[in-house]
Design a protein around this nucleic acid. Sequence first.
DNA 1: GTCAAAAAGTGACCGCCGGTCACGATTAGC
DNA 2: GCTAATCGTGACCGGCGGTCACTTTTTGAC
Lengths: 197, 197
Amino acid sequence: MSTKQQEKSQQTMQELMDSAIQLFGSKGFASTSVAEITDNAGYAKGSFYRHWNSKDELFLQIIERKFRQYRAARHEKIRKARNLEEAMNIIWDFLETILADRNWPSILLEFTVYSATNEPLRKFMNKSDYRLSNQVFADLVREHMETDFPPEKVGALNTAIFEGYLIHRALGTQVLSLADVRQNAIALALMNGTKQG
Amino acid sequence: MSTKQQEKSQQTMQELMDSAIQLFGSKGFASTSVAEITDNAGYAKGSFYRHWNSKDELFLQIIERKFRQYRAARHEKIRKARNLEEAMNIIWDFLETILADRNWPSILLEFTVYSATNEPLRKFMNKSDYRLSNQVFADLVREHMETDFPPEKVGALNTAIFEGYLIHRALGTQVLSLADVRQNAIALALMNGTKQG
DNA sequence: GTCAAAAAGTGACCGCCGGTCACGATTAGC
DNA sequence: GCTAATCGTGACCGGCGGTCACTTTTTGAC
């Protein structure tokens, strides 16, 4: 059992994180200040830094939690893929759980691109807890590939199409629907992974 | 002929813009401050705001200039496309001139995503002077489409793949080569625009 | 119950940012 | 030669992420 102090600390962290999730979700990462997060939760600014070393660090923790949620939602309806098309559909069911999360796809995109300008942050982001994992995608399709096209590239191309679509969405361009993108991403994977494409 | 004052003003603008292009190009948009731009050019900070209303405004002007350069480079080797594949190759020759411009692709990506969080800026960015134009891409492929798949979607999908690849690159992921992406983007367009894909 | 050590919470403070503006210095045109 | 317009200046503003000496609360050994 933990002490009263540890419990209080845990609760404060939770309150600050909830406040942050709410504010980031409505205003984005860069536009939300640490003072806003603490004010909104009823604490002083200094308290924030008792629990995290930077705004980035809190955001990474939130991303980690988000991805755990997405994965949990996916696991509920997971099934064994019997062929490449089914594997791609499992991947896209997962991607659609992300897209369904209000404007978090945009926020994730914002932070992803921001992280590219910061070396240590970039390295963190390349871990699968914080990113769409090309590796996980590759593992899902690997055993169903009929050609010698590398499964890693199937995963990475799929991620590229998905994130390109996030930009398309974020800018309010309305030429592509989610269905368009999903269909084309799957078709491309099948073209690369099926014989006589 | 312009007055001595106008000439001086023009020259100052040019010097500040050159300084900015250099700094943005090496440090990115957000990490370059207005004071750095003016110091580097030998002016005081206040001078900057005689010529532009904001850092964003200068950047938009630089983008405009960059895109004019890219288009000029493309025009030199332009040729009439005789089929869809040639049209797509013309588009990718153009995209490769952008990719060849040091780390400007990343900077453009940074600013594009940043602009999504700012309504007036987002509207500006959606003009073809500041963005990869899905419309121009669509026009290039339109007359060669053999199916009823909308050419606008061919253009938008191509942009999505390209910008997804920019993220891939910016994060230092090295799974995909430029050749991979180009090949797949063209193949996808042919699949959508050719009979019996 | 007492009391010193440890941890949680605080807010003034730091350097830096984008942006402003009253002020001299320079130029324009009558 | 003189006034008005323009250019260039740098102190200044509010707000940012982050720090730190300080107070308040909790802990656990006695």
